[in-house]
Nucleic acid binder design. Sequence first.
DNA 1: ACGGTCTTGTATCGATCGTTCCAAGATGCG
DNA 2: CGCATCTTGGAACGATCGATACAAGACCGT
Lengths: 200, 200
Amino acid sequence: MAGRKQFDVDEALRRAMHVFWRWGYSEASIDRLTEGTGLGRGSLYGTFGDKSTLFRKSLERYAQTYHPLYEQALSGPHPSPSAVVAAYLQVTLNRIADPTVPDGCLLTVSATQFPALDAEGQAMVRAMIDGLRAMLRQALLAAGAGEQEAAELALCTLATNKSLAVLSRTGFSSEDLATVAAAAARGPSPQAQGGVCRST
Amino acid sequence: MAGRKQFDVDEALRRAMHVFWRWGYSEASIDRLTEGTGLGRGSLYGTFGDKSTLFRKSLERYAQTYHPLYEQALSGPHPSPSAVVAAYLQVTLNRIADPTVPDGCLLTVSATQFPALDAEGQAMVRAMIDGLRAMLRQALLAAGAGEQEAAELALCTLATNKSLAVLSRTGFSSEDLATVAAAAARGPSPQAQGGVCRST
DNA sequence: ACGGTCTTGTATCGATCGTTCCAAGATGCG
DNA sequence: CGCATCTTGGAACGATCGATACAAGACCGT
C-alpha cells in the first residue's frame, strides 16, 4: 500500500500540466488533478505542495520542455524575419496538430486567462511570456529585421501563438489552425507579389 | 424595501456582462455578480434565472451591442480586403483602448476559454463566432477577395480579434494592442513593397 | 383603506472547493 | 526480525460554491 514512492514525479507533473491546460486553473480541481495524475490527495500535497505551487511547478516543467524547442527553432540562421515567425509557430502547431501529444499547445497562454491564479503565479506566467518575446525579438534582429520591425513581429507572433491555442480549444479544426499559422508566417516573399507582410 | 423593481434590467445586464468579461465564467461567482450589478441574490435569480441563464442573456445583450458595430464597420464599400480587416479590428481596438468603456472587448473571446460553461452556453458562443466569421467572409468577398482568400482572412481576423482580447487581459499596453491590430490590417498596399499580406 | 402581487434581503440548503490530519501499511537499515 | 521512516488512501475540516425558501415590506388596483 505504501512505503516508497509508487510513481514517477516527472510523469505526474507532466499529467498535472495537461490537466491545467485542459481545464484552466480554477476548473482544474484537486479531484481532477488526482484523477489525471493517478496520485492520491496525500501524495499530491506531500510531493508538490498546494494547488498554486503545483501549478507553478507544472509551469516550470512546461518551460523545460518547450523552451528548448523554441530556442532550437529560433537558433539557426534564417533567411528572413518571416522565416523566424514560421519556425516559431511551427513548434506550436506541431504540438497542437499531433493528437499523440496530449500536453501540446501553450500552457502559458491558457494560464494567463485565469484570474483565480495568485499573484506569484501571474508574475511567473508574465515573466515567461516576456522571455519568449525577448527571444523572438533577438532572433528577428539576427534575421535582418530592423529594431522596430523586430519588436512588432515578436509581439504579433506571440499573439498568433495565443490565437492558435485559443482556437484549438474552441473547436476549430487543425486545417483552420494551419491556415492561421501559414498566413502569419507568409512574410516578405521573393515571389512576384512579395512585399512586407506583418503577421499577428 | 420592496414593491416594484428598483433597478434597470438592461443596465444590470450590462454590468453582469462586465463581470463575466472580467472574471470569466467560473470565477464570476454569484457574490461577485451581486456586487457588480448591485442587485441582491433574490433579485438576480428572480429576474435572470440561474447563473448559466444569466450568462446567456449577458451574451445576447453583448451581441445586441456589438453586432451592429461590426456590421456597420463592414457595411461600407471597402477598397481592399485589408481595409475590411482594418475596419473590423478597429471596432474591437476602440473598445479596448477606451478606459471609459468598461464593457469593451470581446466577451465571446473570454467565454470560449472557460470549460465550466454548460453545453447550451458553449453552443451559443460557438454560433456567435460562426456568425461573425460568415459576416467577415462576406465583406471580404465584396471587397474583391477570392473565395479562398476571403475564408482565410476571415479566420485570421477573428484570431487577431481573440489575440487582442487575450493580450488586453494579460497586461499588454494599448500601444502593443494597436501594434498587433495595425500589423493585421496592413494588407496589400498600393505602395512599392505592396503585395498579398495575410494577417491573423 | 385594504388585499393581492410583486420585490427584496436574509437564512439556509446540499455540493464541492482546497486543505489538513491521521491511521494503516510497505520499505530499508541495523 | 524490530524499529524508524516514509508513503498512501480516506476521513474530515472550514470556506465557498450555486441555488432555494421564505418572511418582511412596498406598490397598485379597487
